[in-house]
Amino acid sequence: MVTSEIVAIGKNAIVENDPLVILFGPEATHNLKDVAVIQKFTATHPEINLRRGSKIKVRDLSFEVTFCGKLVNANLNGVGHATFCFEPVPDTPLQSAIYLTPERFPGFSVGDKITYIF
């Protein structure tokens, strides 16, 4: 289990009726910070190993991973990057994305905790 805290939300990170959110660590470039939710892990070097069936909690809301792209774990462990998709897994899913169920966007606020349970 690894926990992060949302420390910033870019002005274009949350788009109404768009069921996804892009996450990055604090070292994201200025351009990325405009379109991303910035998370800071409590562990210095997180060792995240998500797979189908893992859980992700946003605040007190729990989601199950229905698909975890092959780039997700390396990206999360390296630069805190992943895309959370709150929609059904498409025929060609994004390899940097985590598809989650239930398929409802939880909303994000600075100070929220995200817990990765694998």
Rank of each mutant, 00 (worst) to 15 (best):
V58A: 11
A97L: 11
A74N: 15
Q39E: 02
D34Y: 02
T92W: 15
A74I: 08
N75P: 14
V37T: 05
V35Q: 06
V37C: 02
K55F: 03
F41G: 06
T66K: 13
A43Y: 13
E87I: 08
L20A: 04
P102V: 07
K40C: 06
P26R: 01
A97Y: 03
L94D: 14
G78P: 14
F63E: 06
T92P: 12
H81P: 03
A36W: 04
V37D: 02
P88N: 13
I98M: 05
T101D: 06
V37H: 01
K70E: 13
K57Q: 13
T101I: 13
T101K: 15
S62Y: 14
P93T: 14
A82K: 08
D34A: 09
F41D: 05
T66E: 07
I98V: 15
I22E: 00
L100T: 03
V37Q: 01
V65H: 00
T83E: 07
P90R: 05
Y99K: 00
V58H: 05
L23F: 01
T29N: 10
S54H: 02
G25A: 03
H30K: 10
P26I: 04
F63A: 04
T42S: 14
L71T: 13
V37M: 07
K70I: 13
D60T: 10
N75V: 12
P90Y: 10
L100I: 05
N49V: 04
P46A: 12
P93I: 07
A28C: 01
D60P: 04
A43Q: 13
F24E: 01
D91K: 14
K57N: 12
T92S: 15
R104K: 04
A74D: 15
F24Y: 01
E103H: 10
R104E: 15
L50K: 01
A97H: 03
T44F: 08
L50T: 03
T101A: 12
P102T: 11
V58E: 04
N73E: 07
L32T: 05
A74W: 10
F41K: 02
V58S: 06
V79N: 06
F41Q: 06
P46R: 03
E47F: 13
T29F: 01
A28K: 01
S96C: 08
S62P: 07
P88S: 13
N73V: 01
N73C: 07
S96F: 15
C85D: 15
S54W: 00
V72I: 09
E47N: 12
L20V: 02
P90T: 08
K55E: 04
H81K: 06
P46G: 07
K33T: 09
Y99T: 00
T66L: 03
A97Q: 07
T83P: 13
L23A: 00
N73A: 07
K40H: 11
D91L: 14
E103I: 09
G78D: 14
P26W: 00
R104W: 15
A74P: 11
T44C: 10
